[in-house]
Design a protein around this nucleic acid. Structure first.
Lengths: 355, 355
DNA sequence: ACTCTAAGCCAAATCGATTTGGCGCCACAA
DNA sequence: TTGTGGCGCCAAATCGATTTGGCTTAGAGT
């Protein structure tokens, strides 16, 4: 009896198919023993009626919400964070998480900055993805205190044994960039980064220092202050150029573009006097003046692996260890001197060893 | 009796306070008749136990999900959309929506591009915010077919009587920009936009044409193709510069920066030979070469008004009409000629008339 | 023919919060 | 003393799907 009710319930399907609600449920969830013919008939009726289970009822019974949360990194200064986040990478990551969650039959909830534990308790979720955790990340801690599964994008350096994270292979990408510089003839290879504790920055720094040591170079590392983006970028860039490098790897986008600007003001030509590379690819990197050689972090892949890992954890399965996302280097004009185009060529296909 | 159960139920609170579940519910929802003393005691116990109602149970009973959906604009080409969206505006809008929803005790679900009606049926939501609707937007139609409340950010031009939308006052911002050009001495004011049917673009175009008519100017309007962002931007910019304008309003960010690049290549100096302004503010606009005069669309305000309007609609209240968000013009070097700095000054405070 | 098994189906309990309808009890008026 | 009404509280029904524990019935085995 389907009256004017807007949405069909399982009972409507049961009546229309001439079976019990139990049988309908069994058919729809592939459980129990149901005759093949009955199964087909019930499925057809459910389809015809456009039946969708009420997720509240289902969640109440099963204890699951079929919803996961995404927590983008947010610092104290909201507006500032928005600017840091306004990079193609985060947007792509978010949208890809949404897609990936959808494919796993999960909905994706975006959470605001959490102040207290109750803020998190308010949401009905099965687990969460925390992007760019800081050491002893309070957001991760909240999830753990509530017994909720978490996965991080980027690792928490203070918990080296935690296998529940996904991240771009930043050691590999750093050496890919630095080797690319050397192949293009650079001798004084510097790094311009920022004083933030996210592992993406920390790992790149570490990889840079190790690389300089193993290559017998003197490290030239300048860190910008994490606040007042525009002015601190210029200040740091100037400080770095005073060291007279001939190649600079600036992982954060705003520092790379800031460096290009300062270089132009100081009459340093890119790529002739200075090679520059950025650690994340974007429309801006492709269209800056000159276009910037960039590392493609593959946000779509990162997102799908993160969601996959989280679902795995929710289901109580074991992690087979952290997942490193392979990255690709896209060489562009900012590292292509006219006289070394040929030698720079092979670097195009340079990729980290991992599959 | 609170055993090892991870989360307290209403029954736990009732037992601990020595009352029935009914009374607890009444206290927590401010309903029914409960003695003030009992009320205080129950509230205290609930607080002490850290009780939070199970949202599935609550939703099942009440029929509400306390969750709203956000649908960012997405075209056929996913990667392309991501680039269009990778603007500070959308990120800020999203994060502000999350915050605003939180303040209204709602969770915010981010939805993937919807292919069929069932895609939407899967989610348990009370309503949705559709950003940048196209004419006869299919996403809006899906919501309506399911009887779900919708609010759009940007209006659907094909439904002029629908009061359920929020948008930046783009007529006001367009004339603010154009008047600013004239105040800075421009005579040949052009517009560079894109051939997309979102109302934000359409309204700006319309406002431009009307402005030229009322000022006795000849309209100079060039529209870029909406695909292949990088190349079409350059192509359109070149086409526009062939018309020899002395000021260009390019609402989309990628066209404004593309124009700057092409102008530089052609030896057109900004702002000396050409004034340029962009329709949305961003870190990129502030740090481009030269910094771009931009319209601040106030995404935070837009978000909070949109969420507010949606909640209003969900609650079954009437709309008091669309909400126009006031915008501000931020004049920067791209429209400040050395000789007109003084006259350009007042434009700083130029704002649309609406409150 | 008689048990025994298992296939096929269903009734009822369950998840946790909300809401309806009503039961006592006390105060006050008749 | 007896009615009347309101206050404070509660038992039970309800929301919709899932799951447990049977109950039939058909077919196999002896």
């Amino acid at each position: 009896m389907k009256t004017s009710r807007s949405r069909p319930r399982i009972r409507d399907v049961a009546e229309a198919a001439g079976v019990s609600e139990t049988t309908v449920s069994h058919v729809l969830n592939n459980k129990g023993r149901v005759d093949a013919a009955t199964r087909a008939r019930v499925a057809e009726v459910a389809e015809r009626l456009g039946y969708r289970p009420n997720s509240n009822a289902r969640g109440l019974r099963s204890g699951r919400a079929d919803t996961i949360a995404l927590l983008l990194p947010v610092g104290a200064d909201l507006a500032l964070s928005h600017h840091v986040l306004a990079v193609d990478f985060y947007l792509s990551l978010t949208m890809s998480c949404v897609e990936a969650a959808f494919e796993h039959d999960q909905a994706l909830l975006q959470l605001p900055p959490l102040r207290k534990l109750d803020d998190l308790r308010r949401f009905s979720i099965d687990g969460g993805i925390v992007v760019d955790p800081v050491p002893e990340d309070p957001r991760v801690a909240m999830f753990q205190r509530l017994g909720l599964p978490v996965v991080t994008v980027g690792r928490d350096i203070t918990h080296p044994d935690d296998p529940w994270w996904v991240a771009a292979d930043s050691a590999a990408s750093t050496s890919a960039v630095l080797d690319h510089f050397v192949a293009a003839g650079a001798r004084r290879v510097a790094m311009l980064s920022v004083d933030i504790e996210w592992s993406w920055f920390a790992d790149a720094e570490l990889a840079y220092v190790e690389w300089t040591e193993s290559h017998g170079h003197e490290p030239m590392l300048v860190l910008a202050r994490p606040d007042k983006l525009d002015s601190s970028a210029a200040e740091a860039a100037n400080r770095l150029l005073d060291l007279r490098p001939d190649a600079v790897y600036a992982p954060p986008q705003w520092l790379a573009t800031g460096l290009l600007r300062v270089a132009r003001e100081r009459g340093v030509r890119v790529p002739d006097d200075l090679l520059v590379s950025v650690g994340v690819d974007s429309h801006l990197a492709r269209t800056s003046e000159p276009p910037l050689t960039a590392v493609d972090l593959d946000p779509a892949r990162t997102a799908s692996e993160a969601v996959d890992l989280l679902v795995r954890r929710i289901e109580g399965r074991e992690s087979e260890g952290p997942r490193l996302i392979p990255v690709a280097l896209h060489p562009r004009a900012s590292t292509m001197r006219a006289d070394v185009h040929v030698t720079a060529g092979p670097a195009t296909r340079r990729r980290p060893a991992r599959p």
